[in-house]
């Protein structure tokens, strides 16, 4: 799957992120936490790549590595710069800076994502200035900010206001506008709607889809709401304890689920109509501590179809059907 063809905007190879535990005086050093463990995937230009998984599975960490907020311990992140794949992690400081505007992030909490002391214009202006958008002309930048606000259905003169004068949904639209104003190619959306009301969620999701079509954007959409991810994504990756356990086209993932963990996740989607007994798979136990991950398959202590081999060897993510990757010994060919 690690092909560097033209249609791929982003290729992530064997990405690993470790957090070292702080060393305390006279205490044994605790093992470091592997939040992201040897993950590889590709994102095609113009598509939405969904990432799902429960809290603490490393999906946000993965997103932060991609926009280089965190420095991964290992791995490569190739980004398509006009047909040429460049590894973002090996670029020098200056080249790396040029790519920062191309990859933007929209955070989960719209209340914390804007500096309460700055007006919207100040918040938009600084990154535009340092990335030379609008050619160093303040009036031109102001025009661009106004345009960007209009694009997310906000009035241009809102730019003179402070963040606390807006509602959560408005703020999230401002965050989207702030990302768009830098003319990015890829936006990492880190649970952009989970802090919003359901009615506002739909509004924002539709707006994002519209903007994606208009501007040819690529999204990495991180969420734990499976219906939202299905609605937004073309392809979906399922993460568990820092590992990618299944990766497939959105519809294929929902109709031909392979990994037992994905099955359990999907069975947890509430069904609006009562259809007799809903066979929900309840997972036993808790997610193991990523500091002391289980041997073999990370999911084996909670898996209902655990076999002897699962406890010893860790399954690799392999293509089992067309474009459908899964990391599970159940599908091993003997």
């Amino acid at each position: 799957m690690q092909n560097k063809t033209e249609e791929n905007l982003l290729v992530v190879e064997n990405l690993t992120m470790e957090f070292a535990s702080p060393r305390r005086f006279l205490e044994k050093q605790k093992p470091s936490v592997r939040a992201v463990n040897d993950i590889s995937f590709t994102v095609k230009e113009g598509e939405t790549f969904g990432l799902v998984g429960e809290s603490g599975c490393g999906k946000t960490t993965l997103g932060k590595c991609i926009i280089r907020l965190l420095k991964p311990a290992n791995g490569k992140i190739f980004f398509n710069a006009d047909g040429e794949m460049k590894d973002l992690l090996t670029l020098d400081h200056e080249d790396s800076f040029k790519f920062r505007k191309k990859l933007q992030i929209v955070f989960q909490d719209p209340y914390a994502a804007l500096n309460p002391q700055h007006t919207i214009m100040e918040a938009f202006d600084e990154p535009m200035r340092i990335h030379g958008i609008g050619g160093g002309d303040k009036e031109k930048r102001k025009e661009l900010i106004a345009m960007s606000l209009e694009r997310v259905n906000l009035q241009p003169d809102y730019m003179y206001r402070y963040p606390h004068e807006f509602s959560g949904g408005q703020r999230q639209r401002i965050c989207v506008a702030k990302a768009l104003v830098l003319e990015p190619k890829l936006i990492v959306c880190d649970e952009p709607v989970s802090a919003l009301d359901v009615s506002i969620q739909a509004q924002l999701l539709n707006l994002m889809r519209k903007l994606q079509k208009e501007l040819g954007l690529t999204f990495i959409f991180i969420a734990h709401d499976l219906s939202v991810v299905h609605y937004m994504s073309d392809r979906i990756g399922v993460m568990y304890l820092g590992n990618m356990v299944e990766l497939a086209e959105a519809d294929a993932l929902y109709s031909h689920t392979m990994h037992p963990y994905t099955e359990a996740l999907l069975s947890a989607i509430p069904v609006p109509v009562y259809q007799g007994k809903h066979d929900r798979i309840i997972l036993e136990g808790d997610v193991p501590s990523p500091m002391y991950p289980p041997s073999g398959c990370p999911f084996h202590p909670r898996c209902s179809r655990c076999m002897a081999v699962c406890k010893q060897s860790k399954p690799r993510l392999e293509e089992k059907a067309n474009g459908h990757f899964v990391a599970c010994h159940l599908f091993d060919e003997e």
Partner: peptide, 25 residues
């Protein structure tokens, strides 16, 4: 805070993050 992380992701200088974004808060 995400607004500070967003500054870092955009490559805004440490000096500006400290004295333009954090100290006023």
């Amino acid at each position: 805070e995400p607004f500070v992380e967003s500054c870092r992701a955009n490559g805004i200088s440490s000096f500006s993050i400290m004295f333009h974004h954090m100290v006023p808060n």
